[in-house]
Design a protein around this nucleic acid. Structure first.
Lengths: 212, 212
DNA sequence: ACCTGAACACCGTTCAAGT
DNA sequence: ACCTGAACACCGTTCAAGT
């Protein structure tokens, strides 16, 4: 059903795309190697020709998910007028839109945040996501270590927030929505709560800069 | 081996303690219902008399883990001299030590952060952890919604950071420590990186306060 | 280059029945 | 109140062999 319509053999890309489909349709708990194999009309063992194990498959999915950027959501150019060394008055907005773009990408696939989060935790997946944050922060004139630490703080917040957001989505889509049994982490306006958290981190950076 | 030494029957508390032991000794992936049952000299099905399912067991463990506070690490009293309404000049330090105490508690058990994180994500577990953060923030004179949002941002950062920290620990303890293959999220000084992230969030709150 | 067939070593959960 | 025995419906992964 993915890639080649009726032909027998599949590519690594076919497998990844079929996996992404199952993820988005059924969710991460239902993305099993056996179910994936079945969706490709293949034996489970065939998958191990394309990927050494499930974790590697998930890392590939994570990379594809974070590469999902809604059209025209570029968070500033890679090398603007002030790219070479100097401080950028607009760095804060670029951090904010980088965060928003990542959130959008994670929300584009069911359980996207959890897939990326667990892949990052295992040290797999491309470093692109942290790097983008770090570059945006560095535009503010912060040193490399500060930028990297701020970037991971941002990433942890974004992944935690969106994971919870998505968990809530499918919790609501299922039956259990009794009145008032919301957890204290639930937010009635997820986007606003997200922006607030990002602003807190950006504000902290601004403050640390104003103190030299 | 846990609770009653040679007697046959166990309490819910025995089961939880045995589970905590397995978690700390072998890690979350090896904490299976079957292995837990074996450690109690009991059939797997016996566990389902004490807990309706594994998730509920994990939620109980999460509550016990966050209740682990190293001796004398109280992050300020629950009702100090300025408890009733007014702003507290020292609220920032209380947020910081609350964060440090939570980190210590999570680090006290292998995979502690992941257990708490996944429990929180499922909306299980006690709301105490968020509440403590929210109360510490509220001492700064912030309204309830701001305090709650800041608290969840803090919690997401702490859980993300410590999860990664712990994943790195057992990654290092296993074989694979080739030179220079560290992920961009790795920190050579985890405690400093942790404090930096917390300071960013606290700084953001200070800034938002100075802007009225 | 890509897949089958068959097996290995597991999982979480249910449920009637026992004491 | 607490547990056994047996089953159900699954997992991820390996590996010799096929085309």
């Amino acid at each position: 059903m993915a890639g080649n319509e009726t032909g027998r053999r599949h590519s690594r890309d076919d497998v990844a795309e079929a996996a992404l489909r199952i993820l988005d349709d059924l969710g991460l708990p239902d993305l099993t190697m056996r179910r994936l194999a079945a969706s490709l009309d293949v034996q489970p063992s065939a998958l191990y020709w394309h990927f050494p194990n499930k974790q590697t498959l998930l890392a590939e999915l994570a990379d594809r998910i974070v590469a999902t950027r809604p059209e025209g959501s570029a968070a500033g150019k890679d090398a603007g007028p002030e790219a070479a060394g100097g401080a950028d008055t607009d760095w804060a907005d670029s951090v904010r839109s980088e965060a928003a773009a990542l959130r959008d990408a994670l929300l584009a696939y069911r359980d996207g945040a959890e897939v990326v989060s667990s892949t990052l935790a295992l040290g797999l997946g491309s470093p692109e996501t942290v790097d983008r944050f770090a570059r945006a922060v560095a535009r503010g004139g912060f040193d490399a270590e500060t930028s990297r630490r701020a970037a991971t703080a941002l990433l942890h917040f974004v992944l935690g927030h969106v994971s919870h957001e998505q968990q809530r989505l499918q919790y609501d889509s299922l039956g259990v929505l009794a009145t008032g049994d919301s957890s204290p982490l639930d937010e009635d306006d997820p986007a606003a709560a997200f922006a607030f958290g990002v602003d807190l981190l950006v504000g902290g950076l601004e403050l640390s800069r104003s103190r030299r």
